[in-house]
């Protein structure tokens, strides 16, 4: 673009675009803003209020109860542990996938489709399909026992904590895999080749060069996977000994006794944990740039 054209462009901006009056901007944003205020901020505020409300004014009694009741406190540990384990599994799976997809000559497109498939399935249906897949007499156990011969008899996976981890890997690993695969494909292979030329063995190249370069992508992807697994409701509702996960604990407070205060306490704790994680991630991002 020449300087003259640039100046003209700016003139055009000034004339037609930047002159849009503030009231019109506000009007265009108003409906969406109203929905966010009415259906997000107001309900979240209502949840916070419900969690502290009592006849004698605001109280923290429900939070004290949450952190001193083994059932809810264990649920917190199980939920964080489950999301952490699913995230770890997703990282390993994604790294392996990224390394494989990079060297593949055929089948790349198919592998990519496979990576996105779990996200195209409605989460309730995914939860049900996973329950059937990991059932004691399901296909997964058939593969373990009769095809691979790894296990002597069927393992109990569905309705256990391990089953939830596997199900959450299935559902949420694509968030990590998509980011990591994109990162490895954008990597400059000359750096790795240089290390190899200098005599580094393949595993040294991977550990010293490739992996460090992928760390930002792994972190971004695993934040998304963790948040997905941490907040999942449908999967533990269908296949968990559901009570153990926080989201289901909150729901059970409502269905078993209409204890909205206890339910609100659970989801406020969840929201605080998730927002703290996302906030830390954001700070890390802005700290780097």
């Amino acid at each position: 673009m020449t300087a003259a054209a640039g100046a003209k462009r700016h003139a055009a901006d000034d004339r037609f675009i930047a002159t849009m009056a503030t009231p019109w901007i506000a009007l265009a944003l108003a409906p969406a803003a109203a929905i966010v205020v009415m259906l997000v901020l107001f309900p979240l505020g209502a949840a916070v209020w419900t969690s502290v409300a009592s006849a004698e004014g605001p109280t923290l009694a429900r939070y004290v109860a949450f952190f001193s009741t083994p059932r809810s406190y264990d649920a917190l540990l199980h939920t964080v542990g489950m999301a952490g384990a699913a995230t770890l599994g997703s990282i390993l799976l994604s790294l392996a996938l990224a390394l494989a997809i990079r060297r593949m000559r055929v089948g790349r497109a198919t592998l990519r489709t496979l990576v996105t498939l779990p996200l195209a399935v409605p989460v309730l249906i995914a939860a049900y399909a996973l329950t059937l897949f990991f059932a004691e007499h399901g296909l997964f156990n058939y593969l373990l026992v009769h095809v691979l011969g790894i296990a002597g008899k069927p393992l109990v996976i569905s309705y256990t904590w391990t089953g939830l981890v596997l199900a959450c890997v299935w559902r949420f690993f694509p968030y990590t895999a998509l980011v990591v695969i994109a990162a490895i494909e954008g990597l400059n292979q000359d750096i790795e080749d240089a290390a190899a030329c200098a005599g580094a063995r393949p595993h040294q190249v991977f550990l010293r060069i490739t992996l460090p370069l992928l760390v930002p992508a792994v972190i971004t992807g695993s934040v998304l996977t963790f948040v997905g697994a941490f907040g999942t409701f449908s999967i533990p509702l269908i296949m968990g000994r559901g009570e153990e996960m926080l989201a289901v604990v909150a729901y059970r407070h409502v269905t078993g006794g209409f204890d909205w205060g206890a339910a609100a306490t659970v989801v406020v704790v969840m929201a605080v944990i998730q927002l703290a994680l996302l906030g830390a991630y954001r700070r890390r991002l802005s700290g780097r740039s």
Partner: peptide
């Protein structure tokens, strides 16, 4: 979390 939105 989606469930927080839902309860709210």
């Amino acid at each position: 979390p989606y469930i927080a939105l839902g309860i709210g």
